[in-house]
């Protein structure tokens, strides 16, 4: 279980949120600039809150400024907006970049993952040679290949056309069933939030204003 209780002063308002996530899909929903991405970044360790604590299954990520776990040690998977695939590496190299173990068992897991996502035929290609939907799947595979204990997805589907988007939504739900770790998805599309989320937190100007 992930427990988040943080405060952070931003330029236009103060972010102050308090929530927990089980092995479910939690959606952070709100207009742009409401602090959704900031929350993801603090969980990933790419940004520091001013105060509060972040804990995942008993492991402390953040406990006041002095006790902050390095990004590398958090074992958090992140799917960035626009995917942030390394442009100078093939899809295969991208996916293997974060693999911690290269033994048979893990290789099998990754192979299976690529099969589920249907991207084995893309391994030798470079990111600029594949479509948006394929990039999204490749980035998902890369994030999950590290066997993360939580997956953060920042507007994962916003760059896709409608048809691809619906396919990818189903895929995300399927992957979550397989992986059984907390997924936190940021979106500003209400329809998407309702389809994907087990729970939705509504954010506005750095505060949770409603929960569904």
């Amino acid at each position: 279980m992930l427990e988040v209780s943080i405060e952070k002063r931003l330029s236009h308002y103060d972010l102050k949120v308090d929530f927990t996530v089980d092995d479910e899909i939690l959606v952070l929903f709100g207009p742009s600039g409401s602090g959704k991405t900031t929350i993801l970044n603090t969980i990933a360790g790419l940004m520091q809150p001013d105060e509060g604590s972040i804990k995942l299954g008993g492991k402390s990520f953040f406990q006041g400024k002095k006790e902050s776990l390095a990004v590398q040690a958090r074992n958090v998977g992140v799917l960035f907006q626009d995917y942030a695939l390394f442009p100078h590496m093939t899809i295969g190299q991208n996916i293997r970049y974060g693999m911690k173990r290269k033994d048979e068992e893990h290789t099998f897991v990754v192979d299976q993952l690529m099969q589920v996502l249907g991207i084995q035929h893309l391994l030798a290609k470079y990111p600029h040679q594949i479509s948006g939907g394929e990039k999204q799947r490749a980035a998902l595979a890369r994030a999950l290949a590290t066997e993360p204990s939580i997956l953060l997805l920042d507007e994962p589907l916003s760059a896709l056309d409608k048809q691809t988007r619906i396919e990818c939504q189903d895929e995300l739900i399927r992957l979550h069933d397989m992986w059984k770790i907390p997924f936190i998805i940021v979106t500003h599309d209400l329809e998407e939030a309702e389809k994907l989320g087990d729970r939705i937190l509504f954010l506005d100007r750095g505060n949770i204003i409603d929960e569904k």
Binding site: G45, V71, Q72, R74, V78, D82, A84, H88, A143, T146
Partner: peptide, 27 residues
């Protein structure tokens, strides 16, 4: 450089040294 690429490498567990040699330097 796109900052997110380096951040992506960090979330994938890469040390600062590895981020430099595998992402920042080649790009």
């Amino acid at each position: 450089l796109d900052n997110r690429l380096e951040n992506a490498a960090r979330t994938l567990g890469a040390s600062e040294w590895r981020v430099f040699w595998t992402v920042a330097f080649p790009l």
